[in-house]
Design a protein around this nucleic acid. Sequence first.
DNA 1: GCATCCAAGATCGTATACAATATTGGTCGC
DNA 2: GCGACCAATATTGTATACGATCTTGGATGC
Lengths: 228, 228
Amino acid sequence: MTESLNQAPSSERVADELAVAIHEHRLSPGTKLNEDEVGAIYGVSRTVARAALQSLAHKRLVELRRNRGAFVAQPSAREAREVFEARALLEPRTARSAAERATDEDIALLQHHIDEEHAAIHAGELGRSVHLSGMFHLEIARIAHQETIAEFIAQLIARSSLIIALYWKRRGALCESHAHHALIQAFAKHDGDLAEELMKHHLLDLVTSLDLRNVSSAPTSLREALRP
Amino acid sequence: MTESLNQAPSSERVADELAVAIHEHRLSPGTKLNEDEVGAIYGVSRTVARAALQSLAHKRLVELRRNRGAFVAQPSAREAREVFEARALLEPRTARSAAERATDEDIALLQHHIDEEHAAIHAGELGRSVHLSGMFHLEIARIAHQETIAEFIAQLIARSSLIIALYWKRRGALCESHAHHALIQAFAKHDGDLAEELMKHHLLDLVTSLDLRNVSSAPTSLREALRP
DNA sequence: GCATCCAAGATCGTATACAATATTGGTCGC
DNA sequence: GCGACCAATATTGTATACGATCTTGGATGC
């Protein structure tokens, strides 16, 4: 009975590592991802590096340009709005379901996420805190037992991370934690109505903390030139 | 000023052709998609065939099993429910937006879709009618100017096509057309409330026309053996 | 007759090699 | 000095080759 759980294609491992790097803002939007370099870094051939980049492209985390290569995506202001509109459609109702069926372990796990997020903030690891904040949202979708929606939300969270990297206007970095804490309390009470309402406003707060007037949908090539 | 619009990687062309074949029920759920065969059929190497299959896997239209190959996906009853729950979250509100901003050309295009759908039904091309019916829903998301949500809906529609192939209980094949016609009328009146309500019920009708009690989440390998 | 084991075949996973395209730097002409 | 053209380089797109893994058919032993 040998464990046959090694169901992990190596291209997905590479894709995950790159995704976390993007998530934690260690890779800036617009950065070129050379296939040879990526392959060399992770000790694989171009074939699997390429597969990883294509996977990330499908998740809209990188943009592929024919005969040009792969670049960390730079969502436009419009795309940013759309991403948060999509989240506004999906997450509040999902939070309601999650609140109604959350177990004690679920709540403990969420609390653990918040604790780690706090620790990251205090340690000055801002990128990591953004990542953990996203994981909190994703965990809620998982608790709701909605795999399909959870996948969408996972993608939207990843893209949100890029959006935050591009459009965040610094102010009120801790409102996040408060909102998350309030959500946990709603979960503990299994108050679906409250959870839905809290999530709705939490997302609205997030959008208003972005500066999307700056129509930087400008030719992405320009930013590119200033990066490397 | 030579047109540089040939922005189509050949793997995406192959993926699209396969997707349409699945959409139109010319490829049944569970069918094995051999990399060599796919490559030979479309006159490309295994490399690009493989990329196409990975792309479809990401859209959940095919399932990849390590060292086994690619198979047309067989959504479980639970996945089927989740897909329609996701659609229920996304599509009604999107229909509202679309109704509020639909132009005369938009409405004409939708009418054209319905006409083609009718033609396909009368011609006995049932698969094609399912495909066109899906395109109708997708067009609505486009009219709403929500690219991000439109992509999600596109994926959900494709998966719905598989679900219909697996769980459809034949009865009331034309309710579809009626619902679509009613939606167009709501659009013509720019009645967002009505469009949202119609879409909501249309999706509920769709779910109830499926037979999901049949918990055919049975080992997908069995069905496999009976297909080719 | 039945189950077990093993070898042959088929298929996938990955690496490498070659061709096509874009970028870059320099040279030529004005 | 400035711009346009062209060759050299770098990078991607695609094909092929090889090793690893799974499936399959038959032979062997009981």
